[in-house]
Design a protein around this nucleic acid. Structure first.
Lengths: 119, 119
DNA sequence: CAGCATCCGAGTTGATACTG
DNA sequence: CAGTATCAACTCGGATGCTG
């Protein structure tokens, strides 16, 4: 295998990138990596997500083997989501990104202001 | 500052996440981190990107202070893009993600096949 | 070469309403 | 509680044609 040819059209990396490349995946996975959560708990914690998007995101994560869904036969139903081991490894590699964001966000915003001031 | 409350609606992290959360940003930035490139060179190297999207992506990266654009008064014009120091730090924190993708893509795809087989 | 402007179809998203 | 269904709004992205 070539060393990191993520630029070719069908490189698998693209698939993962596309997966991560949505507003909610990273947030949801990060939360689940801390511990199992129920649907509406997630909904509350990830501010701004609609239940449609959350539902969709969770389904995608489940399909990719990053999260598991378990339903308990209580009344009403209880559904619990948790990160798989694979999901944990991904969440862990995403941590540096979260940290980068916190570290440099001010710089980015300053750059934006500078740019917008000119334009 | 709170420790990583990326789940609040206006957390700066969201901004960065949204920035990364597009098909091309990560690819383009990764390429530019290796060295300066011209517009059409980028276009060729990032397979599948249209010039509209590339243009848009570059503008966004420039606005965020991650990439600089320099035009030379040759005929025809030569434009060179390169990653800023800030851009390099982001690209570096993205590397683990690229590696994760290469490492686990097979597992993810297997999970997808399993999931799709049931549904 | 390095783009911008325009048009247009396809896919995404969000509200809202309803179900087991 | 944990979703699904549906519809309308919106955005995205590609194709095409043009400019300095």
């Amino acid at each position: 295998m070539q060393p990191a040819n993520a630029y070719a059209a069908q490189c698998p990396t693209r698939l993962v990138l596309d997966r991560v490349a949505d507003k909610w995946t990273v947030l949801v996975l990060g939360l689940l990596a801390e511990g199992p959560l129920r649907f509406n708990e997630l909904r509350r914690r990830v501010e701004g997500v609609s239940q449609k998007m959350l539902s969709q995101t969770l389904k995608g994560l489940e399909r990719d083997g990053l999260v598991t869904r378990r339903a308990y036969a209580t009344v009403p139903v209880t559904v619990e989501y948790r990160a798989t081991p694979l999901g944990h490894t991904l969440s862990a590699t995403l941590d540096p990104l979260r940290i980068w964001a916190e570290t440099y966000i001010a710089e980015v915003q300053a750059a934006q202001r500078r740019y917008d001031a000119v334009a």
